[in-house]
Design a protein around this nucleic acid. Structure first.
Length: 322
DNA sequence: AAGCCGCCCAACCGCGCATGA
DNA sequence: CTCATGCGCGGTTGGGCGGCT
């Protein structure tokens, strides 16, 4: 059995807001605030604005959404906000608030969004809270329509190169055109960034997805690629290397190393886990600048260190940096 | 000029959590 | 403690608009 709807859909208006409705909502909210009860707001706002009723005791009364709507039955001439309280809240938060910025995301904002997405995934409200004037809806839409594509464009160009690498070393390379794991013995010259697991036990054992389940989302590939692909040995330190050849972030190396940092022959790391877009292993310590692994369209990531990147669980102090 | 197509974004939907009775 | 209700969030939808043929 599903949850009952918050209000009677038949009695509320839906769809785009008219300028009159916007004005009514804005005027009411700027005058009285929400009163801590969005559900009661439409009916109250309508009475205050259309009928010029202002009763202090009524103002503080909590009403359900349907009670709020029933005010329209009591006052049939009332032409105020015949809207669901939830809809009013959304309209105010996403559009009418005075401090809202619309459109025109800056590159700096791009970087912040990208970085925070890597840290915490689609926590749009948290990401938006770090971007003054931006709403979660704005950020979400921007990500889905522009930013993702922007990054994808940077990734695709390098895929053929990776394919070639795969062909050269079929036993060591996972079956993905854009990411692969190789042993250090390949001796490639990468512009690399590396991170180490301080304690392999901290990393957890949940990184077991299959290469055939690779997510085509370039962001997930990028963000989770150097986090989820590893299977850490029980005694060795491990390094994952993300290369940045030319325009892409296509090559990923994962190699466990011995305690004295001497590289050993590594096992093939072909168990790729891209289930989580933000599956940063707990306890990972990032040493290098994120920019070294970042797609070139995000040069300002240089300002953000891997040490800033935290797993879900969300250390608030990290989020607060932005 | 008209029709089609794809993109963008405002708005909706439903779920999980918090809170109060 | 339980239940009902509201809030907040993330995912999804669909209408409008601009570009292309």
């Amino acid at each position: 059995m599903g949850r009952a709807p918050c209000c009677d859909k038949a009695n509320v208006k839906r769809g785009p807001w008219s300028p009159e409705e916007d004005a009514a909502l804005k005027t009411y909210l700027e005058t009285y605030g929400t009163g801590g009860n969005w559900m009661a707001l439409p009916g109250k706002a309508g009475l205050f604005l259309s009928l010029s009723l202002s009763l202090p005791s009524f103002c503080s009364k909590r009403l359900s959404c349907n009670e709020s709507m029933s005010l329209y039955l009591v006052f049939p001439d009332h032409q105020g906000l015949r809207r669901c309280g939830k809809s009013c809240r959304l309209r105010w938060l996403n559009y009418l608030r005075p401090d809202i910025k619309h459109g025109g995301f800056t590159e700096e904002e791009d970087n912040i969004i990208f970085t925070l997405y890597c840290q915490m995934g689609s926590r749009w409200s948290v990401i938006a809270s770090k971007l003054p004037g931006r709403t979660d809806n704005d950020v979400k839409n921007y990500w889905n329509t522009k930013l993702k594509k922007k990054l994808w464009a940077g990734n695709v160009s390098d895929s053929t190169k990776s394919d070639q690498s795969s062909a050269e070393n079929p036993t060591l390379v996972a079956s993905t055109p854009s990411l692969h794991c190789v042993s250090k013995a390949e001796n490639h010259s990468f512009g690399i960034s590396a991170f180490q697991a301080q304690n392999p036990a901290d990393v957890g054992s949940g990184f077991s997805a299959n290469s055939h389940s690779l997510n085509s989302d370039p962001i997930q590939l990028y963000c989770s690629g150097f986090m989820d692909v590893l299977e850490f040995g029980s005694s060795s330190k491990n390094i994952c290397i993300v290369s940045q050849e030319n325009s892409g972030f296509s090559n990923l190396q994962c190699l466990p190393v011995s305690g004295n940092d001497e590289v050993e022959d590594s096992e093939v790391l072909e168990d790729f886990g891209f289930g989580s877009p933000y599956g940063v292993g707990n306890g990972l310590c990032f040493h290098e600048k994120a920019s070294e692994a970042a797609p070139p369209c995000y040069p300002n990531l240089a300002d953000l260190t891997y040490a800033d990147m935290k797993p879900p669980g969300l250390d608030q102090s990290v989020i607060d940096q932005y």
